[in-house]
Design a protein around this nucleic acid. Structure first.
Lengths: 149, 149
DNA sequence: GTTATTGCAAAATATTTGCATTATA
DNA sequence: TATAATGCAAATATTTTGCAATAAC
């Protein structure tokens, strides 16, 4: 029985969407998959990948992310309002931004925005549903109340 | 009985939030109130106001919008992903962006995101709830199916 | 070998900052 | 008059574009 590596799995994913599995694309996708909860910016991905691919350019990161978005492999979130955060998200979900520490959490809500909802609203045909929350996260709340050790 | 003009009403609103009612601020607020469904960018406001205040600067528009946001008079939406849209919105609501014509509609959904929801999620304390939809609007759908005259 | 991708440099866009001028209370 | 707001110029940050070099199939 043949072992299937993670890279081979990602390669197959790219090919199935009609994207050539270049080293740059595979590395960006692997980073997004491993760090999926970090919701990085293009710049963060670029900085992280320079160690592995010293010649990579920010243009390639943007090209790659655009291609992934177009094929629906990743999603883009504008939750912070200052830059786009990218998310490798096989399962649709919403987000929570902590206004204190800046961390973005995935949230799986029971009654998600759009659940038991028709695919139209006021006659408009819905293709995408985005929902996000802002506030103080669990961790920062605990720190505030002196619960951190 | 004394008539209360709209400008006087807006002046009172600014003063009640501790903001000096300068001509620039009143004019920006009046524009947002009258065009509240247009969800303009800072640039759109600036372009529109040059006719009335030829000396106004984009910096003042940004300063003004920041002050309004801080005082909760307006809200900011990042629905398009490329720039911030401002909204004078006395009643909280969600938004729909038409990916064809770019128009942003207000939507009052029956089961809004966060309705019948506690003020925490996964232990995170919620201060703001944002929800938006993307798709093809009523008008563009009609055009597509040949219903426009 | 042909076509698509990469990556550099420069441009475009959106927003912020420093500071002198001006207006407000 | 003291304080805050305005507006110009320049800076910063993010993203996009043109194009030549390179890599994939």
């Amino acid at each position: 029985m043949k072992m299937i590596t993670n890279m081979e799995k990602l390669k197959t994913l790219l090919e199935s969407r009609g994207l050539k599995p270049t080293f740059q694309r595979l590395t960006v996708l692997e980073y997004l998959e491993k760090h999926e909860c970090h919701h990085p910016t293009a710049e963060m991905i670029y900085e992280a990948l320079i160690a592995r691919i010293p010649t990579i350019s920010i243009t390639t990161v943007y090209n790659t992310l655009s291609a992934f978005l177009e094929k629906g492999i990743i999603s883009a979130e504008t939750i912070t309002g200052t830059e786009v955060r990218y998310d490798f998200a096989p399962v649709p979900h919403h987000h929570f931004l902590c206004t204190k520490c800046g961390k973005i959490y995935d949230v799986k809500i029971k009654c998600p925005l759009g659940n038991d909802m028709k695919n139209t609203i006021d006659g408009h045909h819905i293709h995408e549903i985005h929902g996000y929350f802002k506030g103080i996260c669990r961790e920062c709340s605990n720190k505030k109340s002196g619960k951190q050790k």
